[in-house]
Write a protein that binds this DNA or RNA. Structure first.
Lengths: 137, 137
DNA sequence: AACCATTCCATGCACGTGCATTCAATGCAA
DNA sequence: TTGCATTGAATGCACGTGCATGGAATGGTT
């Protein structure tokens, strides 16, 4: 069954781990790009900011340590620091120094932050459903 | 079965499409970051450059139009243009104007380009296998 | 031929990210 | 207490990316 056609290139790489990785790469580009645009246009925040808000929403006591937050999100420490800075600038989040360890910083959702998150959630879900299969950006 | 525990947050989002998306986001960050580092350290190219070389390797006649290349890769037109520019600067690729349509640009792998690709391929595969399950960056 | 819409690629600009560094606060040992 | 390694977070810098634009080449219309 070893077809000697000249048009069957890219077949071997399309199966197995490499193929899965390539699919992931394509899907990531399509979905994240579409999400980025929709969230930016309709709510004025980027994907990183949305994901950050999303983690804060189901925080146990409302607060979240930067260090812990960094563990639960795909962002690096510096990227998270800046994302939170942008959110704070927009009044969606506030930072407070930890009492017992004044190196630590607590991040907490403000009322405006929760309001915007609730508004952005439907957008996020819609775009996700719309672009998951393909198309998108 | 509606458990009223106070510790089962993040469950609803972990299943279904949103959960899959979040997994993809995490895996993308881990794998692409690890690949980026390994390729950069061991071969002096980034992930975008490697993926570009990869497309060029199984080009039919060795040449590849920029416009076609842009369709077959997750990069935007401008990102691709710059990736090719970097590859050309390193002598891994050369650009030539199409004779019949002088707007079009053909990209072609040089000998050095193929050589470096052959060397980088094992690295790519190793890192991919090592980071796909988790860990990584 | 003259004109215009379209296509292809490159590029200026703004922006988010990673890396490495910096600074402050903490814990520990002498 | 003093000294030092460690940790948490912010930031300067370089770099890759997307968006919008620009310029060149093409095709079609008059």
């Amino acid at each position: 069954m070893t077809r000697t056609s000249t048009t069957d290139h890219r077949q071997p790489a399309s199966t197995g781990l490499v193929g899965e990785w390539r699919e992931l790469l394509d899907r990531h580009a399509a979905v994240s790009c579409a999400l980025e645009k929709a969230l930016q246009d309709e709510h004025g925040i980027g994907l990183s900011e949305f994901e950050t808000l999303d983690r804060l929403v189901d925080a146990n006591c409302g607060k979240y340590r930067m260090a812990d937050l960094a563990q639960d999100i795909y962002l690096s420490q510096s990227a998270l620091s800046r994302a939170v800075a942008r959110l704070e600038k927009d009044g969606l989040v506030d930072r407070s120094v930890c009492d017992t360890d004044r190196r630590g910083v607590f991040v907490r959702l403000t009322d405006a932050g929760r309001k915007l998150y609730d508004a952005a959630l439907p957008t996020h879900r819609e775009v996700l459903h719309a672009t998951w299969g393909g198309g998108g950006c």
